[in-house]
Design a protein around this nucleic acid. Structure first.
Lengths: 114, 114
DNA sequence: GACATGCATCGATGATCTTCGATATATTGA
DNA sequence: TCAATATATCGAAGATCATCGATGCATGTC
């Protein structure tokens, strides 16, 4: 588990001049994390909740089985959009603040065409 | 199920209260359009170009065959992100202004967590 | 009209993704 | 220690996707 090495090209805004392949891939990966209705709903539910959201609160509103929700949650955490916190046997999720800024920055195209 | 006649559920911001299934799907669709490195690069190339971009200018920088680029361009146009203009036998593409605003609005999560 | 060129469409292939039942792992309570 | 519960992981099935060669359809040129 290297922690020190890894430039790992972070996602670049769509308006970046001379975007590299690695940046394009990282940016696409971030968007792809939100490219599923279930994951959009999860982010929406977490974003509009005052408190952190338990995984068990998601199965019913999403209408998906527990393993499926777990799968989507993992993808969102891996993408850096959600933060996972274990409380006893429950898993709670919150929006990751970095992600909010990153997403807005990446999606920003203003100044390019308007 | 549907209300009266549907407004064709446009994508809703991630911070929308009580997001519907249709809105979640539309939002996911928009993100999915940008969920591929090739499409991110296309949008980037078009966004950073002063003038509209010819399809033929994309094959080489993307390193993809002509049918593949055509496929990606169609997806971006369908998603409302690019606008297609035919000039003689050439196809030119520009950023669609609506998309710029829509994307920024959908990706906006500020005020929710920060 | 015949030919060349730019792009879209078709068809096939291999990869990736979503979904869920079954099962494993971890934590709590008795 | 044993049973119950919450979540993650595994494995499989079906769907979707990216890719490209071959081909069709326009448009422009001679």
């Amino acid at each position: 588990m290297s922690t020190t090495l890894e430039p790992v090209a972070c996602c670049a805004p769509l308006s970046t001049a001379a975007m590299s392949d690695a940046e394009a891939s990282a940016t696409a990966e971030l968007f792809r994390a939100l490219g599923d209705p279930a994951r959009v709903r999860i982010v929406n539910l977490v974003a509009t909740s005052d408190e952190s959201v338990c995984a068990c609160e998601l199965y019913e509103p999403l209408g998906l089985a527990q393993p499926t929700v777990s799968h989507h949650l993992k993808k969102l955490v891996d993408a850096g959009l959600l933060e996972r916190e274990q409380r006893g046997k429950w898993a709670y999720f919150t929006l990751k603040r970095d992600a909010v800024e990153k997403l807005a920055a990446v999606a920003d195209l203003k100044g390019v065409c308007c």
